[in-house]
Design a protein around this nucleic acid. Structure first.
Length: 287
DNA sequence: GGAGATGTTTCAAG
DNA sequence: GCTTGAAACATCTC
């Protein structure tokens, strides 16, 4: 499920944890999402820590925890929890006595809340990074970063002329955070069939429109955030119902009989770059 | 019961 | 050595 904007939404859901002490961690003893991080390590490293930082990068979430309970003057994170939500992962808040269900991989308990990470398909990933590891420093530039210039994009794609537009947009080393629906949205706004090879396209326009879609998706998250209520906040699923507006392809691509919001032609579906792709045959003709 | 899913990694083939 | 695409992962929904 989660792409750029939904990942930001998930970060905000856990934001009430900032400044709170983790008094206990309950983790599923053995689950695929831990990868090389033993469950016990998560318990050991996060118990009696305080969440002091949260950020996202593409589809990754990073929560920083300090030792400030031991050393009250220390506010810098000593350990980072990285979460990737995969296809079905979600973060949510629950009451402090929440009983985990079978797909909840871990629960961070604070005095007033439970912070739950759940993922029934287990395509997600969880990592712990020590303070000196600096996991963020080696990641590719985010699409909305000031240094995500045309020259930068040209440099990354010099050997990719034959790749399809959709495959390029889904490449996380080039467009971190863009997933299946955002890629379809960008292709639709470019009036281009998603299978069009890069050599037939204008990289400057791809850059401009991809930034436009990222900015738009995040803006809708901000709008939604301003109207949230209740300690549970909102779930990523609510994103689908609330935003983006019906003028986006997003709102029509999975509907039975879905039509292009621009020309009202019936949308078509096929598999491109191994992913189900929705496109408008009239606005995005095959060349 | 079968197919497909808002993702990533691995591996094989070109 | 590089790019590309298919398969695998686990479980739910339609």
């Amino acid at each position: 499920m989660p792409e750029l904007a939904e990942v930001e939404l998930a970060r905000r859901i856990w934001e009430p944890g900032k400044g709170q002490e983790v008094i206990a961690v309950e983790s599923h003893p053995e689950t695929r999402v831990y990868r090389d991080t033993p469950a016990g390590k998560i318990q050991t490293h996060l118990t009696r820590k305080m969440m002091v930082d949260s950020r996202t990068h593409g589809k990754r979430l990073l929560f920083g925890f300090s030792d400030s309970l031991v050393n009250p003057s220390a506010r810098d994170p000593v350990i980072y929890l990285e979460v990737h939500l995969g296809m079905s992962g979600r973060l949510f808040l629950a009451d402090p006595y929440y009983c985990p269900d079978k797909h909840d991989h871990f629960v961070l308990r604070t005095k007033n809340l439970s912070f739950v990470y759940s993922d029934y398909r287990q395509f997600g990933r969880v990592y712990l990074h020590q303070q000196d590891h600096k996991p963020w420093e080696t990641l590719p530039l985010e699409v909305l970063h000031a240094k995500f210039t045309l020259a930068y994009l040209r440099q990354l794609t010099t050997r990719r002329k034959g790749t399809s537009l959709k495959a390029l947009l889904l490449d996380q080393s080039i467009f971190p955070g863009i997933g299946n629906w955002m890629a379809d949205e960008i292709c639709w706004r470019l009036f281009r069939f998603p299978g069009t090879p890069l050599q037939e396209l204008d990289l400057a326009v791809i850059r401009r429109v991809s930034r436009q879609v990222c900015r738009g998706a995040l803006r809708h998250v901000a709008d939604k955030n301003s109207s949230r209520d209740g300690k549970r906040g909102f779930s990523p699923g609510s994103y689908v119902e609330q935003v983006p507006p019906s003028s986006w392809l997003f709102q029509h691509r999975w509907k039975a009989g879905g039509a292009c919001p621009r020309c009202h032609s019936p949308l078509e579906r096929c598999t491109i770059a191994t992913r189900t792709t929705a496109w408008c045959p009239r606005c995005q003709p095959m060349t």
